[in-house]
Write a protein that binds this DNA or RNA. Structure first.
Lengths: 102, 102
DNA sequence: GCTTCACATAGAAAAATGTCAATATACTTC
DNA sequence: GAAGTATATTGACATTTTTCTATGTGAAGC
């Protein structure tokens, strides 16, 4: 995976408000309006953060009528963890794996 | 762990040049001047990135005479992986663990 | 239809970050 | 101690990111 894409994944986790949002989603799927109640930003700012989280694949949104429900993407979280593991693994621990290309 | 500290850890991984640096360190400890040869930034910029990586605990520096040798911190990498795991784990999977406080 | 509600988008301002040139520091060698 | 080398720090500037207000969109209910 190229550097740009890796950086985009971890950008999801490098803002305090996005960390708060992810923590809130650990207890399960939540509507945007519920998240808005709990973190101290305006609605457009929340929307901006949700876009970054969804683009990074860490969170998925599900529209239902007027509402959008967000939840942690297990697949996305798994991918981020694998990415971090390979990124920090010494080459000797990771020989012949395409994921560890330079 | 509070949001600010978590964000600081993942800031290490959200810049393309820092990803490149980490990838270079997978093959083992390297001198700053060696890293400088391989990535396309000036010496002060490299120094800036190394500080961020070290402050996040992902990389450790070892001074030896005029040189500074950097390497991936296995402890720091492990901590980042654990942090990511707990952050994205559903509450039900993580009951009674202090790491999962909101 | 019109209104209301939930969310997204546009655009601008402010804050944070990445980058460089210049300079400082700290070590080695002569 | 003077000169050279490796790295860190400072200060300025450009870019990116975060945040807001204002406005647009799309669904539900009247």
């Amino acid at each position: 995976m190229d550097e740009r894409k890796i950086a985009a994944i971890f950008k999801a986790f490098c803002d305090e408000n996005r960390i708060k949002i992810i923590k809130l989603l650990r207890s399960g799927e939540k509507c945007a309006c519920k998240l808005l109640d709990e973190i101290n930003v305006t609605q457009p700012t929340l929307s901006h953060h949700m876009k970054i989280l969804c683009d990074a694949g860490i969170v998925v949104g599900r529209k239902e009528g007027k509402w959008t429900y967000y939840s942690i993407s297990e697949k996305g979280a798994e991918q981020a963890k694998e990415c971090l593991t390979h990124l920090t693994a010494l080459d000797v621990e990771c020989e012949n794996k395409s994921c560890c290309e330079k």
